[in-house]
Design a binder for these strands. Structure first.
Lengths: 355, 355
DNA sequence: GTGAAAGCGCTAACAC
DNA sequence: GTGTTAGCGCTTTCAC
């Protein structure tokens, strides 16, 4: 019984009838009086279509406001020309990465889609794996994993990790020179005469966090300063956690004269806590961060920090991923970008004269 | 066969041998010795499956690491349980929105995907329309448009706009009380004794920008202060443009004693230019922003600004969208959230004594 | 309880 | 040049 009021039926009733469902190629074909495959060929500029037909079909497409369904096309083709970026949450670091990724995507013919675990990372370690298998090969041609919670992803397509998990051996990575960076940051503190230096560490499962702590320890050892482990507190790369840690660190007697935080977000938290406790920065406390996120330049005082080229990392990761997707053999599968110490006003010589 | 950890390769014994492609339901079915439809029923917990079969199939799924293809499922079902957020670029405002959206998505059963035009908005006005028709009804069940470049979207599904384009009549919107907010900001300046007040305006095609300018003019009129149109300069909600505008505004003789910027990003740019020109803030220039993005609290001096609950706007937009998707009749289709003046240190009484 | 078969919207052989 | 046909991986009647 032809009782179903479906869009296609409407259209079959006569031209010009617009239903509320999305316009399909089928409808374009009927409306243009040609076959679906002809429409498909017109859309994809395949050979073997007369100019007149092409023009006519394009007219109908225009008139009906037709756009190809990404999903249907993806199911049919193995290629989708979409790159996915998987981030745990939208915060300053991942946002910078996203900007870099967007830079790299420009004029590449790819589109960019970001998936967020919504900050629920601790509850769902390994969420990337699930997302990856549901998307890869169908929705995206490849993916960039930002600070992933998993080591190896047995993915069905190219994957590049930014700031990878510890022990990632197989997947290509883009990362900053965390060891050198941390060393430089701590050396700076040492040169200013500080010896009682605290550290707020990052997410223990990330290579970057481990290397930053290692750099901290090495710089201290190099200067013949013994590490006081009670001054090394966990911050997990999260502002809240870092704030708590900073309270413990700064609220106690014999507090450090300087703090190295494994990320700017955490360094900013240290700054806040210092203000809260009436500890003047840099007069009574020097603080060095890591990342050089935009916010670090705007803090009071502006943060001395180890800059890593986050945006460039996003750009490189996507560029590398595209090479992989295109089947090229990239020269290097593990790219490490340099870090620089950015001197601002949150550090100062121990016992220095007031400015 | 002992010691074969590659489930997929084992399975490839039959027809359709393709080693590295994703695991399909078909493969699970073969491996489990059942039909595809049975596997589908197990996955979707449909009735009519024996506990034994379910357990067995689940075991195979586990072993093979199978995950359903989002694309294939989307093509078949009308529902995808995915919500899309379309942003022009990843910057502080849209990122805050994204965070709010992520909040709202939690435990809703929906997933969140962000699409970015990659900052190429000016080149591609109306990009949302294209994305929308390619995604809606297939990839996403609904979408949130952040500061869209288009008025009406003849979309095939629910759409909610945050900070909409001028003249949007049909689509539901979530927005802040821009008029009141701007009035409050400018009144604050007037109360401090300023009368020569400049303004850096926003993207002219956005309702928010227009209302902020209107609020500026109304507050001035209300105080009996004539608007000097040469003091109203376009900033387009972009830091670069605002910087240029600020240079013109502050570099000239007879510069204003106060500036109201239609966004924090632009206010921050004004701060930078002031520093560049050696104009001390707030001593020689008061600055009021709009948004209260995180960065505004960290500037030097911290920015006095009109706060709009960006994150909440993201949350509300998604909540509203979900109602729409679920077929509910939302009580209100246009939600306006309150704004508050946040007093920090970038404003000061005209001719006030040094602190 | 389970399987066979149709079909979502699209593309790519291959016919005509 | 253009149409016909066969699926991509999945869900869902409807038989058995």
């Amino acid at each position: 019984m032809p009782g179903a009021p479906r869009g296609i039926d409407d259209l079959a009733a006569g031209p010009g009838v617009r239903s509320h469902r999305r316009v399909t190629m089928q409808q374009v074909a009927v409306e243009a009086g040609v076959s679906v495959s002809t429409v498909s060929k017109v859309i994809n500029s395949r050979y073997g279509i007369s100019a007149a037909t092409a023009a006519h079909v394009n007219g109908v497409i225009e008139r009906l406001g037709y756009e190809t369904s990404l999903v249907a096309r993806s199911l049919r083709n193995q290629r989708t020309n979409v790159i996915g970026v998987l981030v745990a949450d939208f915060e300053p670091f991942s946002t910078e990465v996203l900007k870099g990724a967007a830079d790299a995507i420009r004029d590449s013919g790819f589109e960019l889609v970001a998936y967020s675990a919504g900050g629920r990372v601790d509850e769902h370690v390994g969420w990337e794996r699930r997302y990856l298998s549901r998307l890869m090969g169908t929705l995206v041609d490849g993916a960039v994993l930002v600070t992933p919670t998993v080591t190896d992803v047995d993915s069905d397509g190219p994957v590049v990790a930014i700031d990878p998990h510890t022990g990632s051996t197989t997947i290509p990575t883009v990362t900053a020179d965390n060891l050198q960076g941390a060393r430089a940051g701590v050396r700076h503190l040492l040169q200013l005469g500080h010896t009682r230096i605290g550290m707020v560490t990052g997410r223990v499962d990330l290579v970057s966090a481990q290397l930053r702590e290692q750099g901290f320890r090495e710089a201290l050892a190099e200067a013949g300063v013994a590490v006081d482990d009670s001054l090394v507190v966990p911050g997990a790369f999260e502002a809240d956690v870092a704030r708590e840690a900073a309270r413990g660190l700064l609220g106690r007697p014999g507090r450090p004269t300087a703090v190295f935080a494994a990320s700017d977000q955490m360094a900013l938290a240290v700054l806040e806590v210092a203000a809260e406790l009436g500890i003047r920065v840099p007069h009574e406390l020097s603080v060095v961060g890591f990342d050089n996120i935009p916010e670090s330049a705007l803090s009071d005082p502006p943060l001395t920090t180890v800059q890593q080229p986050i945006r460039e990392m996003g750009r490189d990761a996507v560029a590398l991923l595209i090479e992989l997707i295109e089947g090229a053999e990239p020269a290097e599968l593990h790219r490490t970008l340099g870090t620089d110490l950015v001197l601002r006003r949150s550090t100062r010589a121990l016992g220095g004269t007031p400015s």
